[in-house]
């Protein structure tokens, strides 16, 4: 048998992997790079891979001189709220889809699929009017309600996949052992879906953290703005202070990336379980 330290195939594979990593990380790197570049060097050293001097001034001014912390807090409230309520509602619905056969199931699934199909922008105007009627315009609660509804269908299918991966025997055994269906869900099934719950929470958090257009439409006062909307105002307000914007962007990246890194393994697993079935 021939033994080479780096056979051609393996070398190419590692090269390809390295390219993917580079492509994925370079824009994020650039974001951080500009954030730590002193203002006076932004244009002169704009295209250099690393600035000659390094500064945290942009972070300091973003944190203390702008409304960044307000936006950040609002986004946290909205994203956590959305993630929590979506997961709660989707867990119940996913459980029903996974464990019951009932009349009307096909119709409900079809309706949920339709919600994934039409341009959400189509309902932006009616939602604006409805929210105005409910006096939920310019309110974080209104935003949480809307985001929760948007994310429930996908989260439901995700949770259904996780439930499908748990044998039905387990809760039947629990029901014979003395559980009601609900205690079986709480004591036996729920602990086993924790990874799935984590994945769904993280996925929805990230989605809510990113949403821009509905937030633009439904929020207009400064103290209610979520992060994307607030950042958008940086462009006009500060005559595009790039360094600050990128510093704010870097900070905004932290929660969603953290969440995502934690959950992405569960996500692949959850989808695998579902894929085996379908």
């Amino acid at each position: 048998m021939q033994k080479t330290a780096f056979p051609l195939g393996a070398t190419l594979r590692y090269l390809a992997i390295a390219l993917y990593v580079l492509f994925a990380l370079f824009p994020i790197y650039w974001l951080i790079k500009i954030a730590v570049t002193p203002d006076r060097l932004i244009y002169t050293e704009g295209t250099q891979i690393w600035p000659s001097t390094f500064t945290l001034d942009n972070f300091v001014s973003v944190l203390f001189l702008t409304d960044f912390l307000v936006y950040f807090k609002n986004s946290m409230i909205v994203s956590l709220g959305t993630a929590f309520f979506t997961t709660l509602v989707a867990t119940a619905a996913g459980y029903a889809f996974s464990r019951f056969h009932f009349r009307g199931k096909a119709i409900i699934i079809a309706l949920m699929l339709i919600t994934q199909m039409f341009p959400l922008l189509m309902i932006i105007a009616p939602i604006y009017k409805i929210m105005a009627g409910l006096r939920l315009l310019d309110s974080l609660t209104g935003l949480i309600i809307v985001y929760t509804a948007f994310n429930v269908p996908f989260a439901t299918f995700l949770m259904q996949g996780f439930f499908d991966g748990i044998p039905k025997d387990l809760e039947e055994a629990a029901m014979i052992d003395g559980c009601t269906r609900f205690t079986a869900l709480r004591k036996v099934i729920f602990p086993l879906t924790l990874p799935g719950l984590a994945a769904t929470l993280g996925f929805i958090f990230t989605a809510a953290w990113s949403e821009l257009l509905f937030a633009l439409m439904l929020i207009n006062s400064d103290d209610k703005m979520t992060f994307p909307v607030g950042l958008k105002t940086f462009v006009s307000k500060f005559a595009v202070d790039w360094g600050q914007m990128m510093a704010a962007g870097t900070l905004a990246l932290i929660p969603s990336c953290l969440f995502f890194i934690l959950i992405q393994r569960f996500l692949v697993k959850g989808l695998t379980a579902g894929a085996v079935k379908g």
């Binding site: 990593v21 994925a24 992060f227 950042l231 990128m246 990246l253 969603s256 969440f259 890194i261 393994r265």
Partner: peptide
């Protein structure tokens, strides 16, 4: 495991941020 975490990262970057960022690039 590490590579998987890193290459999936763009999905977690909020769209408005990646838009701004690429506009920069």
């Amino acid at each position: 495991g590490l590579v998987q975490g890193l290459v999936f990262l763009p999905w977690a970057v909020p769209a408005f941020l990646s838009g701004l960022n690429w506009a920069w690039l």
